[in-house]
Design a protein around this nucleic acid. Structure first.
Length: 212
DNA sequence: CTATGATCATCC
DNA sequence: GGATGATCATAG
């Protein structure tokens, strides 16, 4: 299955309740008191008939699945709830490669974004809101992401891996991630405004393209 | 144990 | 309420 077909299949899922699907596929949403943070993604993968793949480079895959959640504002509108993890930062690779050759760029180009609506902490229901892909074709977006990549790259070269902080980047930020017990690593995260733009929820202030 | 995806907790 | 850093579940 290629990216186009996957998009078509996923589009048919818009409006479906992921919670009920999780029950159907026997996927754990809650394990005792702990939530399975990857449950929604697993449901989608199972639905498409894909193996649960956690590999960094999907073997034959020409595309990649990403899941994000939306929340309701007090006004009743939908908003991006969280930033989105894109890919791990390999300092050696980042320092060696230009943005156009980077893993970050390739990953973004292959990604399909599925937005789901976060109803409550109980996760009683979770409706699929939209399916999108990155429009790095848009010049402004491409340049801004590239700028962020170069900031990270320069920081790695001049100050080292430890100097990276989540405060960097306009659309994409380097952020700590990891098991959390000593082993530290970092990943690229898409900021909420960036994600909102990608899924067509709102226009990013930094992007003044009227056609968006 | 580590890598990965995604969310939670805490600080401001 | 939003941003930054930390944690949890699962696979290899």
């Amino acid at each position: 299955m290629d990216r186009t077909e996957a998009t078509a299949r996923l589009s048919q899922l818009i409006g479906a309740d992921l919670r009920q699907m999780a029950d159907y596929y026997g996927i754990t949403v809650w394990k005792q008191e702990k939530i399975n943070k990857g449950w929604a993604g697993h449901v989608i993968e199972r639905c498409l008939g894909l193996p649960l793949n956690s590999s960094r480079a999907p073997n034959f895959g020409s595309w990649e699945l990403k899941l994000i959640s939306l929340k309701r504002t007090s006004g009743g509108n939908l908003k991006v709830k969280e930033t989105m993890a894109i890919t791990m930062i390999d300092p050696v690779e980042v320092m060696a490669k230009e943005f156009e050759e980077s893993h970050l760029y390739n990953k973004l180009r292959k990604a399909l974004i599925v937005a789901r609506v976060f109803e409550s902490c109980l996760e009683d229901h979770s409706i699929i809101h939209s399916v999108s892909d990155f429009d790095l074709d848009k010049h402004e977006v491409f340049e801004l992401v590239k700028d962020d990549y170069n900031i990270v790259r320069q920081t790695l070269i001049t100050s080292g891996f430890e100097a990276l902080t989540g405060r960097m980047g306009k659309l994409v930020q380097p952020r700590t991630k990891g098991q959390g017990h000593g082993t530290t690593s970092r990943a690229f995260y898409a900021r909420t405004h960036f994600v909102a733009h990608i899924i067509g929820l709102e226009t990013h202030p930094l992007l003044n393209d009227p056609s968006i």
